[in-house]
Write a protein that binds this DNA or RNA. Structure first.
Lengths: 122, 122
DNA sequence: ATATCACTTAGAGTTAACTTTAAGTCAATA
DNA sequence: TATTGACTTAAAGTTAACTCTAAGTGATAT
């Protein structure tokens, strides 16, 4: 599969896919005679993983590290688990923060709907 | 209350508080004879609102707009409600994305714990 | 054959949200 | 009285994550 089709599929741009590859998050993607990238099924799986984690705000630097460890093999399992746990903790905190803001927005909109607006409070 | 105490209270830096004020998210904060900011209770309430929304990733530009409308008075109620609803939608999408990544991390860590690791999958 | 189109590269530019710097004021302490 | 520490300003610098530019290649449509 060529880059623009992959980009389309995941809602990314070709630039972003090349950028992820440069950063070592995916690939290196095999290229044909013409020098054009040809994404395999396993490339797509990694992109899907990266996309999911990036959408949740996990940093490129973490993903890079994790993927490097992954590619190193079984002796990195313990370290991989540790950084996953660390990221999960960070993510949990963010989820809680966002849930709080979400609840607050909901309450606020509710007050707007019921026309009970406290002029002093945001 | 002085800037560093406020910063402390909210886990922000004085720099960030001055930055928020410059951007019109809070204040302008009243200053004493010496030119030093003195935060009132109502300033603190706004900071708390801004902090909550920023922690959830809402953009400065949105907060600025909302606060401007708020300060304009009742004729902006409808518009305010609309942008709150818009932000809620954006936030919901992010929450869902993050929940997905969180679940995935959990599953992954679980597999690490049970020593069932598929070498082909991240 | 010429134009269009998707791809390639290296490297420069952009954006949001801070964060730091430099230069200065003022009150309290050694 | 000199220094320390908290504050002030305007403006420049930083960081992450893209995003764009310029220059080029190669296959296909007119």
């Amino acid at each position: 599969m060529q880059i623009s089709e992959v980009a389309q599929k995941f809602g990314l741009t070709p630039d972003t896919l090349r950028y992820y590859e440069r950063e070592g998050l995916i690939g290196p993607i095999a290229k044909g005679e013409n020098g054009i990238r040809n994404y395999t099924e396993s490339d797509l799986q990694r992109i899907q993983f990266v996309k999911c984690m990036r959408a949740a705000g996990l940093e490129i630097s973490f993903l890079k590290k994790y993927i490097q460890l992954f590619d190193k093999g079984d002796e990195t399992i313990k370290e991989r688990r540790e950084i996953l746990v660390e990221q999960r903790k960070i993510l949990k905190k963010k989820l809680d923060d966002m849930q709080e803001a979400y609840d607050r927005l909901n309450m606020k909109i509710d007050l707007y709907d019921k026309n009970i607006l406290d002029k002093s409070l945001m």
